[in-house]
Structures are given as C-alpha cells and as structure tokens.
Write a protein that binds this DNA or RNA. Structure first.
Lengths: 333, 333
DNA sequence: CTGTTAGCGCCTTCAG
DNA sequence: CTGAAGGCGCTAACAG
C-alpha cells in the first residue's frame, strides 16, 4: 500500500527516472510521445511526487510562512485572507506561525529560518530583529506588512499618522471641537506602532486647528472591545465630556459605541465615533471609519513574495508600498 | 554560508553522525559527557536540523493540516485558535488549507493526502468523501469537527438539534409565543448542517409546546450579517411580527439586532434575540446565546490528533466527543 | 555506548 | 533526447 515512487513510474513507462523527472518538471527536452507514456503511467499508478524528497533535493520547501501575533484580531484575519487567496492559486502551502510573546517571536523566527522550513516569510505587524533573519539566511525572501521600521525588506504599509489626521480632521470638519481618543496599549511588547502613530496624527490635526489635546479624554488600554468600552464609559461620564471620539481601530470603536448605547447617548447626534481599518463588521454596524484595504494588503504581500520567489529577486521599484487610506462615510459621525 | 549539516557537527564534536542524531532525538543511549560535546558543537555552529531531510528519512512531515472553508468566519477563527494554541506547543507546524468550493475540497484533499504533505488532518465543518482519504492513505490520522456524518474518523461535535431546542425553549420560557428563525443557506454546497439541524430543534420545541412554526417568520439567506439584517428587516415589518427571533449563529444575530435598531425596536422588550455559538464579540454586544465552546473544540481536536500521532493509534473511547451546550444569559432576551 | 553504512524519493549532472 | 549515477541531510539498523 506504499505510495508509488518515481522509480515505479519509470519502470511502468519503460523509461528512466530522469525522464520521469523531466516530464514532472515540464522540461521541454522530452519527446511528446515519451511524455505521453510517462503521463499515462503516472495516471495509472496514481502517482504524485513526494514533497519532502523534492524539497531535500531541490532545496525548496514549497512553503510560505506567515508570522503574526493574535491572528484572531479581525485586521489580521482579513490580511491573512488576502494572503491565503493568492497562495491558494500557487504551488505554495501556507504555514501559520502565531506567536504569543516577543520572546517567542525571536526564538520561532530562529528555528523557522535556520531549519529552512519555508521558502519565504510574510511578517504581519511585528517588530523583529531583521539581523537575525539576515544572519541566519541572508537570501530568504521576506515581505513585511505594517511595520515602518523595516529597512532590509520590502514592506507594505499605510501612513498611520496621516490616517490619524484624516480621521480627526473629518470630525473637526463636522463641527467637533471636543474630541477624545481611545487606543490600544501605547507601548506593547510586540512593538505594534499603529496606535501611537495614529495618536500623533490626532494631535497634529487638533493643534493645526488650534484645538487642544485633552489628556482626560485620551485612553490607551488593553486590547479589545471591552477595555475600550470601559474607557469610553469613564470618559463619557466626565463632567465635561467630548462630543466625538476617534478610536484607533474598529474593534475599539465598537466598544465606544457600546458604551454610548449604555449611557443612552445617541450616535452621532450626542456622540460621534470614527474608527480605523474598515474591517468587515464595520460595514454592518455602520461605522464611519478610515479604510486601509486590509485584504488587498495581504494579497499584495503574497504577490510580491511569489514574484520574488519566481524571479529570484524583486524589482527594487516594488520595494515599498503605501496603501491608500480613505474615509468611509457611514452613520456614526 | 551554507547551513551546517549533521556531518559538520559530528566532525566538530569528534564523533560520528549517528551519535549526533541520537542526541538530537534524545535517545537515552548517549553518555552525558558525549552529549555535552555534541550539544556544544551544535551551539557553536548554530546548527539546526534540516526539516526536509528529516521528513524524507523519517517518513514524517511534522506538519498538521487544517482544512476549512471560509476561515474568516468567527466560529472558524475561534476553533482555529484553539488548534493553534495546542500545536504551537508541539513540534508540528500548522498548514492552512482553505477551500472555496466543494470541488476544490475534493481535489485539494487528494493532493494533500497523496503527496504526503501532512502527518495528520483536522477537518472543520466540511462534508467530504471519507473514502477518498481512506483509499489514498488508509492510515492517515484525521480528526473531524462539526460533521455528524463522519463514520470512519473520530469527531467532535455538538448536538445542534438539542441546541436549537434549548434556544427556542428559552424564548418560550420567557413568554414568547411568536418566534422567528433566521439561518444560513439551508442547502449549501459545502454541506454545512448546523442551520438545518438547529432549525429542526427550533420546530420541535415549538411543536412540543403546541405552538406553530410560521413560515413567514423563517428565513434562510446568504451567509453573513447583512443578509440576516435584510431578512430581519422584512420579517419585523410584517403586519404580524414575531416577538422573538432565534438566529442560527451569532453573526446572524448581530444582523437581527442591527435591524431591530433600525426599526426602533427595543431589545429585549420589543424584540428578544438569541444567537448560537457564543463567539467572542457576543459578549461585547451582550448577546444572549447558546455557547458551544468553540476554542475548546479546536483544542480537543488538536489534542486527539497529537495523541494519535504519538501512540500510533487512538483509544476508541476517545472516538466521539460531544461538546456541551449551554445558554449564556445576557441582555437580549 | 558509539561509528559506519544504507537507504528515504527526487533532481541534476554526465555520458551516450 | 534519454538512461545511469551521485548526492541532498538525516535516521535507523548493524557492527563493534
């Protein structure tokens, strides 16, 4: 019951293994007739080449790794979807490496890279030691999403500062002068930078308009909707409360919405809320937000990596990609 | 700049490759002293074994495949999380196979199995031809989640009929006599059965209480929140509308909630809503629902598979697992 | 306990 | 254009 090997096929087709290998790899130097014989033998034996052997001798793993933390976050899931959509059509398998702490990142990366478990890597939103990878395997193709600190690898990102300004200006344009901000932890161990950058944009927009940043209205909590809800509950119960809140991502915005609901505040008349990301559920909940084309960014990353893998190098003008940002007007502002 | 091989290590440590292999595989038959020498050489060379070679010679891929459709659905993501949590601690990599149509399923499964790309498989919620796998590789360990039609493999499931009754009875117990139902497509090509089964439970509960199933209040739409919202909008605008709705999963329930909000109906006083799954966001949105321990089911599947892989077989009394179901009382009923 | 020697299945020269 | 042979890095079986 063992799977047939290339040798079985060769024997069956009355040719040598070399020939079989050639038709397998679509080498042009095979007579059509011979090719047919081999193909038939393959069919009859229901043969398919062993991946491990192929890897070992060919030096390729036909595998692409995606490294991320918290892959359950909607924004990660969406980017992952994009990546998956592209890889599915390729010959590459998608291996998921989800890490739980920055220490694990380091270690995991080490093993993955040095064991040659992947032909390429896509790293999502994580700060990592580029030197680690470069030292271990200088030629490993790596594409990075959402990490502006990367120097040695192509990356895809959005201008988070600009996004923060965009969102805030949008609120200001709608007549708001008292605006709060709710974000993820400001200094998290994973080095996510989206919250601080969007906050920078927030401050800039306010200051440019001559408005002040009120610290009481700004909160950086734990991850997730519930924490945001608690913060919003607090901020909105202040004697002087903001009339609008910019949440650093949509999930947090949902928390704010929920808090507003609990307090009997009507959105957007009593409180305007704008999010960031435009994850799928944002549409359902009618959240006004800043769209950053998550799925597309995943697709792009996968395409770049594939291109790199195929050509052995990546055209330098495809090195840096900035995803566009745009306000999606719905009904919470 | 090539990675060091086991031979380099052997030379450096002044031993044979066999010995190195032994310490690598934690064989007890190595003198502590020798082991030290080898370990040191490994450190110095920054060596780590090549996976492909290991696979080829050992006949294992150290890879577990997870097969699913729509892995962006919250319920899948949560189960995937559970799987990931367990595999992360093991030596196995997690490869994601997400398929888009039932045809792809068939084909993908074929290649994955026949190419020996994985040591084991976890199949999520999909109906598949068990014979295909069995024929291709009779001994491949496979664990199935959420597919009661499976005969040849261990599986983990919940009693969806009972869950439907549970939810419906809960509404009835709260005084509702006019109850609607909103579900996913009744006959989808993937063969998901949760909606029809839950609907069965729904009907049984009503009939047992002497209530009637009003077809006008039951809808089976497309996947997703928006479709559910549209259906709910329609049903709730009927001259005679239900006072409660059972949504076949939480995502759909959110759609119903959103519709209720649009129509100015207060929840739960004007309309009660109960969902199914208890996905994470259900807690945030205070949705009353039927919990089915998604993460745990993923963890369990991974554990079973690991056990199987380790012992070479799975204890028959660990063959069938029914996950408990329970009402989570929150504020939408 | 430890060194040596076959393969694992395939790809890639190298002759023919 | 095609068959034969060597080697990819590792494990396992076999002598010492």
């Amino acid at each position: 019951m063992k799977s047939p090997t290339i040798r079985d096929v060769a024997k069956r087709a009355g040719v040598g293994v070399g020939t079989v290998s050639r038709v397998l790899n679509e080498s042009p130097h095979v007579r059509a007739e011979t090719r047919e014989k081999v193909l038939m033998a393959i069919k009859e034996l229901n043969y398919s080449p062993n991946t491990a052997a192929r890897q070992l001798s060919g030096g390729k793993t036909l595998t692409i790794g995606v490294v991320t933390a918290f892959f359950t976050f909607p924004s990660f899931v969406e980017r992952l979807t994009g990546i998956q959509e592209i890889l599915e059509k390729s010959e590459y398998d998608l291996v998921l490496y989800s890490i739980r702490s920055i220490q694990h990142l380091h270690q995991q990366l080490q093993t993955v890279v040095s064991q040659n478990r992947v032909d390429g890597l896509i790293i999502l939103s994580l700060r990592f030691a580029q030197e680690d990878i470069k030292n271990l395997n200088p030629t490993l193709p790596v594409v990075v999403i959402d990490n502006e600190s990367v120097q040695h690898y192509p990356h895809i990102m959005a201008d988070n500062i600009e996004g923060g300004r965009l969102a805030t200006s949008y609120l200001i344009d709608h007549g708001h002068e008292h605006i709060g901000f709710i974000g993820d932890p400001a200094n998290d161990s994973f080095g996510f930078t989206s919250t601080p950058l969007r906050f920078d944009g927030f401050c800039m927009a306010l200051e440019q308009t001559g408005l002040e940043v009120n610290d009481d209205w700004c909160a950086f909590g734990q991850y997730g909707q519930e924490a945001a809800r608690q913060h919003a509950l607090h901020i909105l119960s202040l004697p002087q409360r903001p009339t609008a809140i910019f949440a650093a991502n949509d999930t947090l915005a949902f928390g704010v919405l929920s808090a507003a609901h609990d307090l009997g505040l009507r959105v957007p008349s009593d409180l305007a809320v704008i999010g960031f990301d435009d994850i799928q559920s944002a549409a359902y909940l009618r959240l006004t937000t800043v769209r950053q084309h998550l799925i597309e960014s995943g697709q792009l990353a996968a395409r770049l990596l594939l291109e790199w893998l195929q050509h052995g190098s990546l055209n330098p003008d495809r090195w840096e990609h900035e995803m566009p940002l745009e306000i999606v007007e719905r009904s919470t502002v």
